[in-house]
């Protein structure tokens, strides 16, 4: 297996509470990994730990990305290296223009990769092509970042960012929460467009609904801060029927 990211014995806390308690997980490059688990299992904490969120204190263990430890890396460095988190609750930033923000982010990445920056016109063309595909209105260009967006618009905007920034490891934290069927389809379409056998997905979800649209290669069950089982997609119907209580640590 060609691994793009390896998490070994990860122990992490938020405030005084230890959430991750020796988590091990290996992400195979180009595959879709789904993380499922009950409330409080540590799913969102894992996603935050992977992108270097300030809330998280890593107590022990390591996260390696393309063979390099990223635990000490700042959030922006991880992003520039190709790690992307689609937030469960994207924050609103009044006054920051959506297009300006995205162009700044894209150009920071292009600069990091030694590529030429895109000018405003070039970027606008790129943005518009993705907006249409996601069923987003063109006023998304001029609106402030996530300000006054509906739940569905915020999630689509996350996917828009993903499409434009073209990351290599994509973490989708509860991407399906708050979405109606149409929005779920549009978001899934955007995600599937990025599935090219090279990019790796980590889909964090409570429910199997999103997995009807984004077919996973692996299911990892997270419970009490550890991955207790890894299996193929055949585990999904079992979990639907029996819940997480019936799963024993391997």
């Amino acid at each position: 297996m060609s691994s793009v990211m390896k998490i070994e014995n990860l122990q992490a806390k938020i405030g005084d509470k230890q959430i991750l308690k020796g988590l091990n997980l290996e992400l195979e490059a180009g595959k879709v990994h789904a993380i499922m688990g009950p409330n409080g299992a540590g799913k969102s904490t894992l996603s935050k730990a992977l992108v270097g969120h300030y809330d998280i204190e890593v107590l022990d263990g390591d996260i390696t990305y393309k063979g390099k430890s990223i635990v000490e890396m700042e959030a922006e460095e991880r992003a520039l290296e190709g790690i992307f988190l689609s937030f469960q609750h994207p924050v609103e930033i009044p006054g920051v223009n959506n297009a300006y923000f995205l162009r700044t982010a894209l150009n920071a990445k292009r600069k990091h990769e030694g590529k030429e920056e895109l000018n405003a016109a070039e970027f606008l063309r790129l943005m518009k092509s993705h907006l249409e595909m996601l069923g987003m209105k063109s006023d998304m260009i001029s609106r402030s970042l996530n300000e006054g967006f509906s739940g569905g618009e915020k999630k689509r905007n996350e996917i828009l960012q993903m499409l434009i920034l073209e990351p290599e490891v994509i973490i989708l934290d509860e991407i399906d929460s708050g979405l109606d069927i149409d929005a779920l389809r549009a978001v899934s379409e955007g995600i599937n467009k990025m599935k090219d056998g090279k990019r790796t997905f980590l889909v964090i979800t409570h429910y199997s609904r999103i997995l009807d649209y984004i077919e996973p290669d692996y299911i990892h069950v997270l419970k009490d801060g550890k991955v207790i089982k890894t299996a193929g997609p055949e585990l999904v119907p079992y979990l639907e029927e029996h819940g997480y209580d019936g799963i024993e640590e391997e």
Binding site: E76, L80, F87, I93, G95, A108
Partner: peptide, 28 residues
């Protein structure tokens, strides 16, 4: 800090993210 982190999580440096937020605050 949530807004700062959001910008940084997209590859924007801490310094640039601070500037963007200050300017956004004024722009409104």
């Amino acid at each position: 800090p949530k807004q700062l982190f959001y910008l940084q999580s997209r590859g924007i440096s801490h310094v640039e993210a601070r500037k963007m937020l200050v300017i956004a605050f004024a722009n409104t």
